[in-house]
Every structure is written in C-alpha cells, then in structure tokens.
C-alpha cells in the first residue's frame, strides 16, 4: 500500500509539473502570441479560458456518470470516490465557466448576464452538480449516500441532452459556436494562431483538471483509510 502511494504520488507530481508548464505556455500564447480578434478585440482572449473550462466541466460530468454507473454495478468504493471527486471539481470548473462567460459578456454584449442558451445551460449544469453535492452531504449513512448520489449522477447525465435541446430551441441568441459549425471544417473558421493558443490552453486545462482530480481522489482514499482503521484497527 505504501509503495503504490509513493508511486502514485510521484505520478501526481509529474502531472502537476506538466500542467504548470502548459499553463505558462498557455498564458503566453493566449495573452501575447495570439492576435486580438477582428471584432471583439482583446476581450476575445477570455475565450482561451472559457472554452476549455466548459469542455472540462462537461468531461467532469461524464466522469461522474461513469463513476456512478460503475459504483451501482460493482459497488466498489473507489468508483464512488471518483464520482464524488469529479462532482466537486466539476462544480469548481462550471462555476468558473459562468464567471468567465459573464466577464466576457459585459464588454462583448454590454450585459453581465443574459438568458441565452449557452450561459443558461452552464447554469443548469452547475445546479445539478451542486444538487449532487448537497444530496451527498445531507445523507448521513455513507453507503446510502453513495447509492443516492450515483442515481443522481446517472439520471442527471441522461438528462443533459434533453436539457440541451430544450434550452437551445427556446433560445438562439448566443453566437453560433465558431469552431463547431457543422458545415465548415474546424480550422477554416478560426485564425490559426488562435487555434494554437486554444489547443494549448485546452491541454493545460485538461492537465490541471486531472491533477486536481487525482489529488481529490487521494483525499477520498485517505478518508476511506481512516474510516477503515477506525473500524477494524491498523492494517
């Protein structure tokens, strides 16, 4: 047990170092190397934060789903730890996405908030995540908490496409995503230097996310260890 923790600890440090490197690179490309947008000006640089953030948030939600499904199926503690960790960090990234979107919105649209599709969807995502955390913390029995959380994790994820469709049909004010336009190839729409900056920042965010996730999982494992030691004595 001790040797694996040391190894995973070293793996985590490497991941952290890599993340830090890519963050610096990302910052350089986002703030200095990439050109300002033709219409939005410098404010567009916030997109190098916003797009990776939202994608990472969705990834986190997916991981909550996977962890929840695995847990209900196999009932292994570590899947539950994974789900909880991903939910916690998912809240963080989703919250940040909303803040970034809002800060971008003020100079770009003139308002701090608007009920357009993308912002609304992100807010709903945040609500579901927060609901998950509240549900887990309000159920005292740990096993019950894990099962109930897993149910919400699965149902919430299944609901996402439906929420997407309903909110998009309801609102179509947001600019059509300039990268994911179906008729054109991704790289035809965006200036190449911007695409590079975006990609580097996306990698940076992914690395940060996984670094945080592995650290949070470690915390969960430690908590589990403490619980087991209290119940059954030292290993």
């Amino acid at each position: 047990m001790a040797s694996t923790t040391k190894k995973s600890g070293r793996g985590r440090s490497i991941l952290g170092g890599l993340a830090f490197f890519f963050i610096l690179m990302g910052l350089y490309f986002a703030l200095i190397q990439a050109p300002p947008d033709a219409y939005q000006g410098e404010v567009q640089r916030i997109m190098y934060l916003h797009i990776p953030s939202i994608l990472t948030a969705y990834l986190s939600f997916f991981i909550v789903f996977i962890g929840s499904a695995l847990f209900l199926w196999k009932r292994e503690r570590r899947d539950d730890i994974l789900a909880y960790a991903a939910a916690e960090i998912g809240v963080l990234f989703t919250g940040l996405t909303i803040v970034e979107g809002s800060i971008w919105g003020k100079p770009a649209w003139g308002v701090w908030w608007t009920w357009d599709a993308r912002l609304t969807l992100t807010a709903i995502l945040l609500l579901i995540f927060v609901g998950y955390l509240m549900l887990r913390s309000l159920i005292e029995d740990e096993d019950q908490s894990a099962v109930c959380g897993a149910v919400l994790g699965i149902i919430g994820f299944l609901d996402i496409p439906l929420i997407h469709m309903s909110v998009y049909w309801w609102r179509t004010l947001h600019q059509p995503p300039s990268i994911l336009r179906p008729d054109k190839l991704p790289w035809e729409n965006v200036h190449p230097a911007m695409l590079i900056a975006l990609s580097i920042n996306f990698i940076a965010f992914l690395l940060v996310y996984f670094y945080l996730l592995s650290s949070r999982i470690r915390l969960g494992e430690l908590q589990e260890e403490v619980k087991k030691t209290r119940l059954y004595g030292a290993a």
Binding site: L138, I139, E140, Q144, I163, W170
Partner: peptide, 30 residues
C-alpha cells in the same frame, strides 16, 4: 424516483425540489 432517493436525507423537503427542478427543465420548457 427522487422522492425515494431523498427519503433518508436531512432537510428532505428542501432537498427534493432543489434536486429535481433542474432535471425538470426540459419538461417545464416543453
């Protein structure tokens, strides 16, 4: 489903709407 899920939770009357309202958004909108 979620009424059963929240059966064992504290502050159940508050938690149940909190959990289901975001999930209900497609139904509400549609």
């Amino acid at each position: 489903l979620f009424s059963a899920v929240t059966l064992k939770a504290r502050a159940r009357e508050l938690l149940l709407p909190l959990v289901i309202f975001p999930l209900m958004i497609p139904v509400i909108l549609a």
